[in-house]
Design a protein around this nucleic acid. Sequence first.
DNA 1: GCAATTGCATGATTT
DNA 2: AAAATCATGCAATTG
Length: 333
Amino acid sequence: MGQMDGGDGGGGGHQYHYQALLAAVHQQTLPFPHPLPLPAAAGPEAPPHNAAPQPPTPRGFADWSASTSAFSSLAAQSAPAASTNAVHYSISPCYAFWTHYMLNKNVYPSFPPPHDEQPHHLRLANNHPKDAGSASSFGVDSFTTASMAPNICTHMPPIEGPISVKEEKKPEDLPRVVKRSDVLETRNSGVELHSETVGTLPDSKQGHENHATKLNSGEYQVILRKELTKSDVGNVGRIVLPKKDAEASLPPLLQRDPVILHMDDMVLPVTWTFKYRYWPNNKSRMYILDSAGEFLKTHGLQAGDVLIIYKNLAPGKFIIRGEKAIHQRTTNP
DNA sequence: GCAATTGCATGATTT
DNA sequence: AAAATCATGCAATTG
């Protein structure tokens, strides 16, 4: 019901919708819109014949209903379909992109003023060149952090270029997931996760908070990031997860039985269903995300692309995203 | 018997 | 140098 099985055949005929949507996201033919105001929920202009698939509810990623209405209302403004399905989503990339960007950067123009030096988990965690080019990965090279988030630009380096997953790691340049894990590892010592993160934030109480507030409150955090290998994207549909991050942030696997994980797609209005399990391996374990074939296929992920899993700490839901690798020129201009 | 899926072992790489 | 991690291939199992 509303969920798309991540494994075999769950996509069915909808897959064309998703792929068209995804294609539109990556085409990025329209100018980037100002992210505010958020689209009103379920606007009256939402067409009953909306081509976008119905999302599962509730959405884990902030309020997917807002996202959905964005898809719906924006689709309604599109010219009547003349050619492909993609036209229905011709503007949705902008919203998806904003979503993508905000989750990636965890920034927002109305972030508290700079004098509030309270460390911000995501902001710090994302302060990493690897992600600095996410906006550019959608072809918006002129889109800078400063222009989007003037209040916090002093905390963040400007976007310098497209993401390059091939970039070498430097010791002082730890991937954010490592930093997140360092915090999240408290889970293994019996400390409640969100009491340490969300609880320290001023606006953690629910109510009228919107996307932005939730993002700023640090509810969404990158918990796992992996560059996909050839075997990950093979036709088996299983992805080996980094042990450290899996143990730190994914549900504990007490038994051999797989745990079913539902993860909202960050870009598409889909909830994927994965089987999360482990294999004994020497004296250790290998953590596997199974039934990922459809997800990989839908996003066209290949070796070198990156899988990113976010966690919404409050309801404990996950958001998953596949990021295509942009192979940056290594020669400087 | 075959294809798909699942489980495991091994070797390469990293820490 | 040893241990840990992980990519990958293959055997075993299942439908």
